[in-house]
C-alpha cells in the first residue's frame, strides 16, 4: 500500500536520507530502526509532507504523495504521530480530538462516534476530556497524540518514537494500543529506538544507518541478529 523508492532528503546543504526504498503492505505493522541521527525521523517527515526538500517517490495505493503539503497528505489517509507529539497544548483534550478529525469534514454524529472509539481505546482520556493537553503527564500526552492521529481513521499510521521518555509500563500500553489499531486494518510504520520492543510487535523491519537502508528482514529473525546490533549501537557493541 505504501511504496517508497529512491527517497533522498536534505536539510539545507546536508543530505540526511539517501536512496531509501521501503514498503508497507496492507494491514502490516513495520518497524524502521536505526541509531540516533540515522535518518529515521527525516524519512517519516518526508512521507507525511513535513520535510522541506525531498525527492524520489512515495506512493500510497498508487497515488504519489511526494510534493503534496502535509495538510493534503492527511486527507489521502496517512496520519503522522510526530516526535515531540505536537499537540495543541493550550486546547482541551476534546478540542485536540476535534481538530484531529478536521480533515474529514464530516458531521457531528460521525465525529462523536470517532471520539467514542478513541475514548474506548484510551479510557484515561475520557476522564481528562476538558483538561488542557499541555498540563497532562507525558504518557497521557502520548496517548492523546495517538488518539488524535486515529481520529481520521487513517489507512496508514506513521509513528515516530512514541515511546520517548515514557515509563516501560506506559510503553507497553502504547504498543498494545497500536496492535489493537493495527488489528482493525490500519497499516503502521513505527520508528523506534527500543529495538526489542519494536521487533516484538512488528512483522518486518528496516534498519537505517547514516541515511541508508542497511538491513531489511523479518522482525523475529532480526531480533537476535548481530548485524542489527552492529548497525544500531556501532561496531564496538556488535560483539
Amino acid at each position: 500500500m505504501l511504496t517508497v523508492q529512491g527517497l533522498n532528503v536534505s536539510y539545507g546543504a546536508v543530505q540526511v536520507v539517501h536512496d531509501v526504498a521501503l514498503e508497507v503492505r496492507p494491514g502490516e505493522m513495520v518497524a524502521l530502526l536505526g541509531a540516533n541521527g540515522a535518518g529515521k525521523t527525516t524519512t517519516l517527515r518526508a512521507l507525511s509532507g513535513l520535510a522541506d526538500s525531498a525527492n524520489g517517490s512515495v506512493q500510497l495505493e498508487g497515488r504519489e504523495l511526494l510534493g503534496m503539503p502535509a495538510h493534503r497528505i492527511i486527507r489521502e489517509g496517512v496520519a503522522h504521530l510526530p516526535q515531540g507529539r505536537e499537540l495543541f497544548a493550550e486546547l482541551s483534550v476534546l478540542d485536540n480530538l476535534r481538530l484531529g478529525h478536521w480533515s474529514k469534514r464530516s458531521d457531528e454524529a460521525h465525529l462523536q462516534a470517532q471520539v467514542e472509539r478513541v475514548f474506548t481505546l484510551f479510557p484515561k482520556l475520557r476522564e481528562r476530556a476538558t483538561q488542557a493537553a499541555g498540563t497532562m503527564s507525558g504518557g497521557e500526552q502520548q496517548m492523546l497524540a495517538v488518539a488524535r492521529a486515529l481520529m481520521t481513521e487513517p489507512k496508514l499510521l506513521l509513528v515516530d518514537e512514541a515511546s520517548m521518555g515514557l515509563a516501560p509500563i506506559v510503553v507497553d500500553q502504547l504498543f498494545d494500543a497500536l496492535e489493537q489499531v493495527n488489528a482493525t486494518g490500519t497499516s503502521i510504520l513505527v520508528v523506534e529506538q527500543f529495538v526489542a520492543k519494536a521487533l516484538g510487535h512488528t512483522t518486518r523491519a528496516y534498519v537505517l544507518a547514516k541515511g541508508r537502508v542497511v538491513v531489511e528482514g523479518k522482525s523475529d529473525e532480526l531480533l537476535n541478529s548481530p548485524e542489527l546490533l552492529g548497525a544500531y549501537l556501532g561496531d564496538g557493541h556488535a560483539a
Binding site: P69, I74, P82, E86, L91, H101, W102
Partner: peptide, 18 residues
C-alpha cells in the same frame, strides 16, 4: 477552533489537515 489551533502550533495544524 481550527484558527486557534493553527495559531498555537503550525506543525500540529499541518498534520491534522489544517
Amino acid at each position: 477552533l481550527a484558527l486557534r489551533g493553527a495559531a498555537q502550533n503550525r506543525t500540529a495544524a499541518s498534520i491534522v489537515g489544517i
